[in-house]
Design a protein around this nucleic acid. Structure first.
Lengths: 212, 212
DNA sequence: CCAAGAAGTGAACCATGATTCAGTTCTTAA
DNA sequence: TTAAGAACTGAATCATGGTTCACTTCTTGG
């Protein structure tokens, strides 16, 4: 035997892998998963198509990796807001939602790709984990608030999902096309909407038992 | 000349067109737009593939028509709840959100297709109209509530989008997998969340001016 | 320097699924 | 009954885009 992988090679491969992910993330920002094509990606990376398959066994695997890579970044930013010392739970949540919203507006296509674009089953598992992570982050913050009595008792899991949904829909959809100078107000209003939902005293349950 | 379209033929064509839409809607319910394939649809309709193209110029046109057909049904149901006499605005909205939620849970794939599945540009225009219609319905109801003082002043457009987003995310995502016997409670909780958001007295604006 | 083993290449291949079109069948008015 | 004009058919065609693989180039221990 005459060849054995050395650390120099290992690092170069690691760098290539990272470059692939970075380029894929850029493409994700430009056109979502559906615009992420193997041939185009290879060109971006100055690699041959086949080479991509030495790093990822399939497009699905690549997408999953990109998804997780992007996710880790996003989740990290939001988590950081929730960990600032000296803030109450509502303040934490307001800060986190604002970060979520600002980042989503800055990279709307990627945000949509992470949140809503339908993808292969394997990528969808990654998405479920992503949502789960958000849900966990927010629901933990809500539970903290309940414990320290800065928030009223509530189903924190449901609230956390609803929070993310409200922000996402309010910002990603048609409203996101509006003038940039109004965006901050829109974000503030959406955050306010969310805070009202979680801080208000329980609204008497209305459950019209209609058929539908 | 010996042939001229008669009303009998016109009606038969109309029926065929409707049958295509109905079958397409059923397929949409089973597997979303991505599972809506021309050959399979033709088989369902007992027609040849080519015949579909006599009724719709392309798959995109067909999808758009199906989208609008499905949309009209959904919007109609929600609108009906908002028009019940003798109810206050919060009651109207609770009823409408409940209907929205129940229907979404009964046909989750179609709901996801209408709300989130990425589609051709033309279909996307239809989706924007769809969201716009929802937004209009709810924002009008909110405006009514503000006028009759059953709701506090607020940005009704934003609130309406956030309402739909909160319900959709709370119900379409992971939560929808839960046991059916808990669904009603989940719906009630999500509706309560929404009502708290729109009925609460304004929460002092927090707008952390962080970078993100 | 050499040979073994990897990594890299990209044109060819393949799968999927929309679209077409030449031929067939149906409908109608004369 | 007949012929003009539609409507219908479905196999063939086309487009897209992921995946493969025979071949070339690089890396490394001896």
């Amino acid at each position: 035997m005459a060849y054995r992988e050395t650390s120099r090679v290992r690092e170069r491969k690691q760098a290539t892998r990272q470059a692939i992910l970075n380029n894929a993330l850029r493409m994700l920002n430009e056109s979502g998963f559906s615009g992420l094509q193997m041939a185009a990606l290879a060109r971006q990376c100055q690699l041959a198509t086949g080479t991509l398959y030495r790093y990822f066994s399939s497009k699905e695997a690549l997408c999953t990796a990109v998804f997780e890579y992007a996710t880790d970044i996003e989740i990290g930013r939001v988590a950081a807001q929730l960990q600032q010392p000296q803030l109450t739970a509502p303040e934490h949540i307001a800060a986190a939602l604002t970060t979520f919203a600002k980042r989503a507006l800055r990279a709307p296509i990627a945000a949509w790709a992470l949140i809503a674009e339908p993808v292969e089953p394997a990528v969808n598992h990654a998405r479920l984990r992503y949502r789960e992570q958000y849900a966990t982050l927010f629901s933990r913050a809500i539970d903290d608030g309940i414990a320290q009595q800065s928030l009223p008792p509530q189903n924190s899991t449901l609230s956390s999902h609803a929070l993310v949904g409200a922000i996402a829909e309010a910002l990603i959809g048609p409203l996101a096309q509006q003038q940039p100078q109004h965006l901050n107000q829109t974000i503030a209003a959406a955050v306010q909407f969310c805070l009202q939902a979680i801080t208000a005293k329980p609204y008497p349950t209305i459950f019209p038992d209609q058929e539908c």
